[in-house]
């Protein structure tokens, strides 16, 4: 018999935050689909004009941060399910968290810049 894993005391928090971020993503995804259809005709020239509008900049920043948070929580569950080696598991979870935070901050800075120069 293997040893019983000790409780990390954060089990239900992830579950709950996954659901809350999912509900937050519902309106953001609808906004994404509606704006995607506009932006896709000429992304090269339309992107700065697009983010010049305050609503689009705010929704873009919210969408990227919320989806990366939701995605890192989801990938954490996938990693916990399929990687049995504990050290590797924690390494990959930390890697996903690191990648998400770095990407979110860079994208937010870029969108703010596009908003200010647009």
């Amino acid at each position: 018999m293997s040893k019983i894993a000790p409780s990390t005391k954060t089990g239900s928090h992830h579950w709950l935050m996954q659901r809350i971020s999912a509900i937050a993503l519902l309106p953001l995804i609808i906004w994404l689909v509606l704006s995607f259809v506009q932006i896709v005709q000429d992304p090269q020239s339309y992107l700065p004009i697009f983010f010049a509008y305050p609503l689009n900049a705010i929704m873009g920043i919210l969408l990227i941060t919320t989806s990366l948070y939701h995605g890192s929580l989801g990938l954490r569950v996938v990693i916990e399910d399929y990687i049995t080696n504990k050290i590797k598991m924690h390494f990959y979870i930390m890697l996903i968290n690191f990648l998400s935070i770095v990407t979110a901050i860079s994208a937010v800075v870029a969108i703010i810049r596009l908003h200010l120069i647009g």
């Binding site: 992107l47 990227i64 989806s67 990366l68 995605g71 890192s72 989801g74 990938l75 996938v78 990648l99 990407t103 979110a104 860079s106 994208a107 800075v109 870029a110 969108i111 810049r113 596009l114």
Partner: peptide, 20 residues
């Protein structure tokens, strides 16, 4: 879900690349 996570990362870095 995994596919969407990867594509969010790629699109975010595309926006960063595009901005600068």
């Amino acid at each position: 879900g995994i596919l969407l996570y990867i594509s969010v990362i790629i699109i975010s870095w595309y926006i960063v690349y595009y901005t600068y």
